[in-house]
Each structure stands twice: as structure tokens, then as C-alpha cells.
Design a protein around this nucleic acid. Structure first.
Lengths: 169, 169
DNA sequence: ATTAACTTTCAGAAAGTATTGAAAGTTTGA
DNA sequence: TCAAACTTTCAATACTTTCTGAAAGTTAAT
């Protein structure tokens, strides 16, 4: 298989995947493109290779930089900005996890911990008990999940890698 | 705060959250509603409490049953079907993880492992090397992630709970 | 200070998803 | 066997998200 086809297959798949990971398709595709490019690419390059508009390229490159997955690079004697992606997958995973935790864990933590503090009133005692139990269980669970994810985000690659791999054995 | 308001707050939040977890809003809301109900509810009950159509209620209750998060219950002497949600959060997490792995990890595994086997041809050797390195790293990473998730899905609650909690300390 | 090279913004268009509700299908009891 | 009680389906519609491209903004060299 020639390089172009292989790249395209990868970019295509990574794009689809990304959209299921809650990351938009173009953002994942740009990320994929930069991951498999030896050189940093300009916005123009990205637009051409993925057939997307200037606005779309710009927006998603910025988002990738916000996430810390992509970095700008200035080449001396050239006014264009060039972009490249970090290739360390554990780093990539950590950065994606960080962003997703913000969106997926923190909000539920907040609501659940708030509800836990409330004194629930009402006539149906059974229903109140069911509600409080669920909230209590959920609170425990979410707080634990959050701690684990936090550990992952902050841990250095090797330690976490080794520890987890021991689990799997 | 009275029970109704607390329930609604929870259902609302769980719904929004779910949509960020790649689960559709109504599906999460129904799940939340059943999680905090002491009794099993009929499709009619669900429609009323969430203000959704019959079709929507039906579709999403079925999806929840496919995921194994909700179970049908027949009450003797009643032709309606009643639905209730399992309250064990580790079980819930395992089931959601199982479904999400199918969507989020398996497809990338397949593509990456396929690409890894290919013999990439082309003139730019540097580009080929960059591509192969990325795929190789990604393959290692994804396969490891998959093993860990698999372990989680199959593990019994206590073992995994204890092991993970030790990590966090 | 001007202008050419580039980047950013944003309103409208397009694409993608979820929801409705009416009609068709199924089951159960008499 | 019939019909009432319920469940399922699906085409049309509404809603949400993403993308485009032209216009505005910025920067750097002369």
C-alpha cells in the first residue's frame, strides 16, 4: 500500500473515531494528519490535504492548540505559521483525558455532591430513600472515578504504564 | 428541597452529561428517572414525567435494555410492561464501558493493526518512517488500553475497586 | 504610512441527529 | 375469533452541530 493511501485510511478512521469520542471530526482529522506528517504543516497545507475551508482549519487548529495536542512553529524567513502534533501517545491520552474529565466528570460531580448535601423533603418516604441511596452511591462512585482519572492525568508515563500493565497480567 | 425538584435536577443533569458521554439525552434522562424511582415505571409514566413522545420513550427504553442498564418487569394481572434500572453503579459503569469500547476502541484497533501489517511504499523515506512510527506507537498504546478496559469489564467489582483505590492512595 | 501576506471571525448554509405522532403490529382475555 | 390494550415502526419535522467563505483584523517589511 502506498503512503498516501495509508495516510488517508488512517486520517479517515481517526476522524470517525474522534467524533465518537466527543471530539469533532475535522479536529481529529487534522490531528491525525499532523500525527503522520514528518514535517510541520501550514494552515494552507491542512486545508488542501483535507479539503476543508480556511475557517474550519483555523478553528480546529486553535482548538487542538487549546488542548495542547498541537504546537505552532515559526520558520525563520517565512511568515506562515506551521503546526505539528506531539507524537507521544501517553501524552496525547493524558491531554484528551484532561479535557474530557472537565466535560464529563466534573459537572456530574458538582450536581451530585450538591444534591447529597440537600435535605430532601416529601411525603413518600420510600421514594426519598431510593433517591438518597442512588445519589449516595453515585457520589461515591464518581468521586472515586475522578480521583483515578486525576492520578492518571498527573502521573508520569512510566509509572502509570507499569502499574496498569501489572493489573492486566 | 423537595423530592420532585431534586429528582428533576438530577434527571436534567444526567441527561446533559449523557449527551457528552455519547449517549443520547433522552436515553440518559430515562435512565436517571429509573435510577431514582423506587418503583418500576411503565412507558406511559416515563412519557408523562419526561414530556416525551411514545416513539421516543419506546426507542430509548429498548436501547437501555440492549445495553443491559434497564430490565422489563411484568406485574401479574397487568398488561403494561414496567421498567426498572439496576442501581449498582459499578455494574452501570461496566455496562457503559462495554458499549463504549465497542464504539471507541475496537474500530481504531482494527484499522491500526491492519495498517501495521501493511508494507508502506513511496519515495519519501522520511515520511514513511514518521508514519510507521506513529502507527506502531498507537498500536501499542491502543492494544494496552484495550486490555485494561477489558479487564475492567470482566473483573468483579470488589477486586477492581480495591486495586484501583490502592493506586490512588 | 502603506501594502502585501497572512490569520481570525461570524452569519448563513449544509449536514447530521433526535423527536414526534399516526399507523401498523402484537398480545391477551373473554 | 374478536377487539381492546398495549408496543413498535418510520416518514416527516425539528433541532443541533459543523462548515463555508467573504470580510475584517493583524503583522511585518519597506
Amino acid at each position: 500500500m502506498n503512503l498516501e493511501d495509508a495516510k488517508n485510511k488512517f486520517i479517515q478512521s481517526w476522524g470517525t473515531l474522534g467524533s465518537q469520542w466527543g471530539i469533532n471530526r475535522t479536529m481529529s482529522q487534522i490531528h491525525a494528519l499532523l500525527l503522520v506528517s514528518a514535517e510541520a504543516l501550514s494552515a494552507e497545507d491542512v486545508m488542501e490535504q483535507l479539503n476543508i475551508s480556511r475557517g474550519n482549519a483555523n478553528m480546529n487548529l486553535r482548538a487542538l492548540m487549546d488542548w495542547g495536542l498541537v504546537t505552532k512553529e515559526i520558520k525563520p524567513g517565512d511568515r506562515k505559521e506551521y503546526f505539528f502534533a506531539g507524537k507521544d501517545m501517553w501524552e496525547v491520552a493524558r491531554k484528551i483525558t484532561y479535557e474530557r474529565r472537565k466535560r464529563e466528570i466534573e459537572p456530574i460531580l458538582q450536581v451530585v455532591n450538591e444534591l447529597k448535601k440537600e435535605n430532601i423533603t416529601g411525603k413518600n418516604k420510600e421514594e426519598i430513600a431510593a433517591f438518597s441511596d442512588t445519589i449516595e452511591e453515585l457520589s461515591k462512585f464518581t468521586n472515586n472515578a475522578n480521583s483515578i482519572v486525576d492520578k492518571f492525568i498527573k502521573s508520569d508515563e512510566n509509572w502509570f504504564y507499569k502499574t496498569l500493565m501489572k493489573l492486566v497480567k
